[in-house]
């Protein structure tokens, strides 16, 4: 079992080492998330009731945008210096290597967002219970963002204006995750129970884990041709 996952582990290790060499990029994405979420009250007004109501949506959209920021650099540097080519020619499973890269992307861009989200939730005066649900929904949801995003990054690799194009392709596909994720908190507040939302989010995560790395590899092979 461990032998099967070796390429996955190696790819994660490599990308984490690279991320550790430019920490600023990681911190910038996190800071971007914090600032976007903090701008909303400034644009909407300090009405506490209203802010509490929009908090889940605001944090989720912030997470979406922060993920998008890092996605453009998921494959592009490896493509430019030929590493991606070497990965595609590896005797190990290309799909597992790519899955490792996606995992590393989540660890670097998704996990910090999940960890800092409760703090931002407090700024929006969310009650403790909602904070917990929101964090849980982000924990289940941010990997989905990385996984679906990888497909978009692979499709737009090396293409003119790939950054903007990536957002155009990916954002509509993020809608279910956004609805179930932000909806979990709202459903709980409305007394409808949040479990349904979170289990749907979990199902989505499972489906994405199975299919997204594979679809990304197919798209990357097309991009490498």
């Amino acid at each position: 079992m461990s032998g099967l996952l070796t390429p996955f582990r190696q790819a994660v290790r490599r990308d984490l080492l690279l991320a550790a060499r430019h920490k600023t990029e990681v911190i910038t994405a996190l800071f971007f998330f914090v600032i976007v979420v903090n701008l909303l009250p400034l644009g909407i007004g300090p009405d506490a009731d209203l802010l509490r109501k929009i908090a889940p949506g605001a944090l989720w959209i912030g997470a979406l945008l922060a993920t998008l920021l890092g996605l453009q650099r998921l494959f592009a540097p490896d493509h430019q210096d030929g590493t991606l080519e070497q990965m595609a020619l590896s005797p190990q499973s290309f799909t597992l290597l790519i899955a490792g890269k996606i995992m590393a992307h989540w660890l670097v861009s998704g996990l910090p967002v999940v960890l800092i989200a409760p703090l931002l939730g407090v700024q929006f005066d969310l009650p403790a219970r909602s904070l917990g649900i929101l964090t849980l929904s982000l924990l289940l949801g941010t990997p989905i963002l990385s996984l679906i995003g990888a497909v978009g990054a692979a499709l737009t690799l090396g293409v003119r204006g790939s950054g903007v194009l990536l957002s155009l392709l990916i954002l509509p596909l993020y809608i279910p995750a956004l609805i179930f994720g932000a909806g979990a908190v709202e459903a709980d507040l409305a007394g409808l129970g949040f479990e349904g939302h979170l289990s749907l989010l979990g199902a989505l995560l499972l489906a994405c884990t199975v299919f997204a790395p594979w679809v990304s590899t197919v798209a990357l092979r097309v991009a490498l041709e």
């Binding site: 497909v151 499709l155 596909l173 279910p176 609805i179 749907l200 197919v218 798209a219 097309v222």
Partner: peptide, 17 residues
């Protein structure tokens, strides 16, 4: 690839909306 990814997602999106 995008069209196929989209067509898998359309029912999920419709359902979620």
């Amino acid at each position: 690839i995008l069209a196929l990814v989209g067509v898998v997602n359309v029912p999920i999106i419709y359902f979620s909306v």
